[in-house]
Every structure is written in C-alpha cells, then in structure tokens.
Design a protein around this nucleic acid. Structure first.
Lengths: 210, 210
DNA sequence: TTTCATATTGTACCATGGGACAAGAACGGC
DNA sequence: GCCGTTCTTGTCCCATGGTACAATATGAAA
C-alpha cells in the first residue's frame, strides 16, 4: 500500500522522528510546520491517506484546521496527536468527524493501528464521495427546465400533472422526461428516484398541491 | 418542557444533589444506582429525555451500558459525566454516539446546556425512528411473495421481467403489485422507491441479470 | 369440515409512458 | 445574419401499468 500520511506539527524534531517511523512502516509522508502550510499545498483527496494533526500549533489550531478542511469538503480523515488533551477539545474533535485522538508519546503500534483505520475509512468515504460526485455532475447537466421536470418526476407526479404545474403540454413533458432519463443515464424511474434520494434532491412529495 | 433525565451514578449524595438541581430547572428525574437498575426499568423511548451516565460505576460500566443500549436500539442520548476522563474512553464514548462527555465537578449552566442539546437531539432521532418504524411495520405486513415483488419493483424491473424471474405470469404480478402499493400506502412508484431507499431495503439494481 | 389467507390466472378496457418522425419559436453568441 | 441550445408541440402507435369482474387452488387454522 502506498497510503500518504500528512504530518502537521510545529516541532521539527518530532516531525522528523515521526516521518522516519512511518516511512519504515511503508507509508509515504508529507510534513507541514503549520496548518497554513498544509492548506497551501492541499493534499490530493484522490489518493488514500490521512492527516496526523497536532492540536496546539502556531497560527491556526488543529481544530480550526479541521473545521476549514470540513468546509473545503476534504475527505482526508484526521488523527489528532497531541501532548495535552483536555476533554472538551477531544469531544469537539471527534464530534467534528476526527478519526481518532491520541496523546503523545504514542507507541508505534498504536499509532500505526490508528493510521491503518483512518486510511481504510478514507478509501470508503473517498469512493462514496466519488460516486456521489458523478451523480451530481449528471444532475448539473440538466437544463433548468429539465431540472424542474426531474424534481416533479421523482416526487411521483405523472406527466399530466407536471404539464399542468409547469403550464405546458403533456407532449412537452414527455420530451423533457426523455432528456432527463437520457442525461441521468438511467433506464427506469426507480433508478432515477434512487439517485434523487441519495443526492437528497427530492421533496418526498406524496401530496399534490391542489 | 417535561423532558426526563435519567441519572445513573453509584454515589447517592451526588444523585440527590443532581436530582435537586435538575428538578429546579424543570426536569423530571429518574435515578439509578447501577446500569442494571436502569436496564431493568428501561425508560420509555417515547418521551423526550436523556441519560446522565457515570463512567465508572459498580457492575456494568458506563460504556458497557452504552453498548447495551445501542444493541437495544435505544434512542436516548447519553451524556457522560465522570470524575476521571481518560482520552481513550472519551473518544470511544463519542464515537459510539454519546451526546457529550463532561467532567465533575460541572457548573449547572454547562450541565443544563448539554442536557438541553441532548434532549433536543432526542426529539429529532425519536421522530425519525418513529417514522422509520411505521414504514418497517408496513413492509412487515407484506406476504413473502409480495415482498419478493416489492424488491424487484424498487429495483426497476417491469412486470414482465418480474413474472419471468418468479416463474409466474404478468397478470399475477399485477395482482401482487396492487397489494404492495395498497399495503405500503403509496400512490406512486416514486414513493415506493423512496421508502425502500430510506429502509435500506433496495438493491439499487439497474442491471438485469440475463 | 369450514373458513381464511395466500397465491394464482384470465379477459377486457383504459390510462400512462415512451419512441418515431417532424418541426416551430426564442435567445444568445459568433 | 447564421448557428446552436433550449423549450416547445403535434400525430401515430405500441408497450406497460392499473382496474373491474371473476375464478381456482392450496394450506393452515378453527
């Protein structure tokens, strides 16, 4: 495996030591002295890996970096690694999605274990993300009108109703509907609804607004 | 609000003090000296509330009780409240879904805040659970045959294919299909697929096994 | 044995979805 | 002005879904 571990810590000697340990374990390693540094050369979500992050670092703190990465929709799991763990910070970090929260000094064995878990999870969420992105890309290719029709279709409306709601004819809706099925690359209504559900792009609507 | 707070702690004086504090704040309170005690008179998930749980209690530990409650599919959020918080335990508890992890002594303000959050979340998950249970109940009312048809319908198969796969006629499938729509209380295929997605009871199947 | 739930099947008939074949109108960019 | 995209609409025809009206068969339960 060629998983990439990104170490963010302000202590150069600690970074070096960790880097050596991890490279021996077969990981590729990137080191960063600050949150800023990591953000500037943002690691590629595309390859499996994780972030080893100190809580208290100069400038942007570990948890702040975590929040920033979440905003950027990074999928890289974060393993916190800190000398001084207070409960509130720990709770916050895990709630915010951190994969783990470890305290220095840490036994290699434990560290590797945590990294292995993190990398494994990354592969899962990364794949999941990729699939969703593909679907989102398809959806984005719909024209505004097609998107309207899409929404009504997955709400269970029939062509006649859609035509009425959009102030056009059934024939027109059939045309749009055809385009929607084509662009979304599905053969059945079931698949279309399934996609809508997974994208959260449905209004469940059983009720027809009279 | 009449939210119910369930206190599990082996220290009688602490329980009493906490009980007083919370009753003054307008909560209804149940106290338990051990995990066993709480499990024996399992609180009703139906009314909003949460559990205040000490980590180190005689017999079953806090985290063990948490695991047990998860197995029992309890929706009551757990707020851990302990004198001695080690990082590993904290991480585990939050990962296992605990709402919060606080340390004694705790200021009333902070405690109430955590409880308020926990109760609010409980109302959400409880409602969510109720909705899912209703759907599951509907699904459970399908006969084995109807369930087979349901599965194939939400995979996007058409009657003809379903009939072939189940070794029967299209007409029969129409009958079952009618029953399925009736029992699941839906008017459209879209709704049916939506339900299947939410219950995780679908095989996404776009591919027809030739 | 009778009764009920389940599974099965048939014949019409109508509503809806969807494709083939064709084409007009509005709008923005080259 | 010409071209491409989008939105629009029509007719004909067939496939599929859905319902009404009926009926048979099997197995378990009363």
């Amino acid at each position: 495996m060629h998983a990439y571990v990104h170490i963010v810590d302000d202590d150069p000697s600690f970074r070096k030591a960790l880097e050596r340990r991890l490279k021996l374990a077969g990981y590729r390693v990137g080191t960063y002295a600050s949150a800023r540094e990591l953000l500037d050369q943002l690691p590629d979500d595309g390859e499996a890996g994780c972030i080893l992050l100190d809580v208290r670092i100069p400038g942007m703190s570990g948890p702040e970096l975590q929040r920033r990465l979440n905003e950027l929709e990074s999928t890289l799991p974060i393993v916190f690694l800190t000398g001084h763990a207070d409960t509130a910070t720990t709770v916050q970090a895990i709630k915010a999605g951190a994969e783990d929260f470890l305290t220095k000094p840490i036994a290699s064995e434990q560290l590797i274990e945590a990294i292995t878990r993190a990398v494994a999870r990354h592969e899962l969420v990364r794949d999941q993300r990729t699939r969703l992105d593909s679907l989102r890309a398809l959806l984005a290719k719909l024209t505004p009108r097609e998107r309207q029709v899409f929404d009504l279709i997955v709400c269970g409306r029939i062509n006649k109703q859609i035509a009425h709601e959009l102030g056009t004819t059934e024939r027109t809706i059939k045309a749009h509907r055809h385009q929607v099925m084509e662009k979304m690359q599905v053969q059945s209504l079931a698949e279309l609804v399934s996609i809508a559900e997974r994208l959260g792009a449905r209004a469940s609507g059983g009720e027809v607004k009279a």
